[in-house]
Amino acid sequence: MSIKAIDHLGIQETISVVPAGEVPKKMGSSFFRGSASNFNPYGSDHVKDDFASRFLLKGWTPDKPFISPTTNVTAFGSCFAENISKHLAKLGFDVSKNRDRDIYISSMGEGLVNVHSITQQFRWALEGIAPPTNLWHGYKAEEFDLTEEIRTRTRDVFLNTDVFILTFGLSEIWYDELTGGVFWRAVPMKHYDPSRHKFRVCTFDETKACIQEIVTLIGKHVPQAKIVVTVSPIPLIATFRPIACLTANSASKAIIRAAVDETVRERGDEWAGRLYYFPAYEIVNEAFPNRFVEDGRHLQNMIVPAVMNLFQATFCNTDLTIEQAEKMLKDARLQSANTLDDHALFSQARFASRFGGIVKRLVGRKRAAKSR
């Protein structure tokens, strides 16, 4: 590394660093950085062929893939687990949604969006601890019963699972103040009772406690299983807090992401080679210049396949290589950049630029005419 002192204007001394395969970086020399540093990408790094491997996946993927067509995979929680299930099913892999379509983690898997709803399924199925009634509802506000038949079928799926893929979506919850029970999603209007149904944001501590409990329950009852945790990149459709939705969503995701990170760090030694985080959240939010369609929540159609291919290349035993997945990601990112032409703000910017150019030319011609 070469050291270059910046003049006497009070700016700290910097070190010029050239990591292999990256554009040169600069860092302050006033603090010890350890034997290795992983830098935030510069603009030019984004066109590198190994961008995802270097700046998004590094440190999170297994030494070698461990999901094969004969691996029993159980994926549920938020809508991104649904995407993983569909992708693996298309590859002919064994996913729980195909093994038993009628249990709740299959029929309502993507509706289990908070940590409490996912924890409820593990407590109920594996240890027979039922949550308070009237908390589980489908998309049409239908109520789901806590029948022993569904519980034992869910338990059987869990006990025969080799890999759990769990996606946590949001921190905003509705709960029954009388029982303390948390709803899967929001409270159906026909059941809403303002005297007992309340809203709050999950704290970091309770979020982490739920995730830790899930890991503990799997370790106790399904000790052979591996766990892959993800955070859904899909934002809130609305917040029930008296603040702007974009800021509420930022807080909601931050709570989950921090709790996941701390769980993986704390349980890493105990669960070495069995507990993983896949950075779907960061891939979507950091790699694509235009992530969502007009509604601000549904991803552009090139994004999900690109993320799933990265998962497949790093976690699954298939012919897809990481180099091929990186190429697909890069192509998808270029397509995403092209969709900016349709973004309302960019369309307005182009109009303003064209209009400004016309005005400038007209003014120039008028001035030229006056000078004559």
Score class of each variant (00 low, 15 high):
Val284His: 06
Ala251Asp: 11
Pro223Asp: 03
Gly219Thr: 05
Gly268Trp: 02
Ile283Gln: 06
Arg257Asp: 13
Val284Ser: 11
Thr247Trp: 10
Tyr276Asp: 05
Pro235Gly: 13
Tyr276Pro: 03
Ile227Ser: 01
Arg257Trp: 09
Asp261Asn: 13
Ile237Gly: 12
Tyr281Asn: 07
Val222Lys: 00
Ile218Glu: 00
Leu275Glu: 01
Asp269Thr: 12
Tyr277Gly: 03
Pro242Thr: 13
Glu282Leu: 09
Ile237Ser: 12
Ile234Val: 15
Pro235Arg: 12
Ile234Ser: 08
Gly268Val: 00
Pro235Asp: 14
Trp271Asp: 08
Ile283Lys: 03
Ala272Asn: 12
Gly219Asn: 11
Pro279Ile: 05
Arg274Met: 00
Arg267Met: 06
Val264Cys: 13
Pro223Ser: 10
Asn285Cys: 07
Val284Thr: 06
Gln224Trp: 03
His221Thr: 00
Arg257Phe: 11
Thr239His: 12
Thr247Lys: 13
Lys220Pro: 01
Ser252Ile: 08
Ala225Pro: 00
Ser252Arg: 08
Thr263Ala: 06
Thr247Tyr: 14
Val231Arg: 03
Ala248Lys: 08
Val284Asp: 11
Val264Met: 10
Gln224His: 15
Leu246Trp: 07
Ala244Ser: 10
Val231Ile: 15
Asp269Arg: 12
Gly219Ala: 08
Asn285Ile: 05
Tyr277Ile: 06
Ala259Tyr: 11
Arg274Tyr: 00
Phe278Leu: 04
Tyr281Thr: 03
Ala272His: 08
Arg274His: 01
Val284Tyr: 07
Gln224Val: 03
Val264Leu: 15
Ala225Met: 02
Asn249Thr: 14
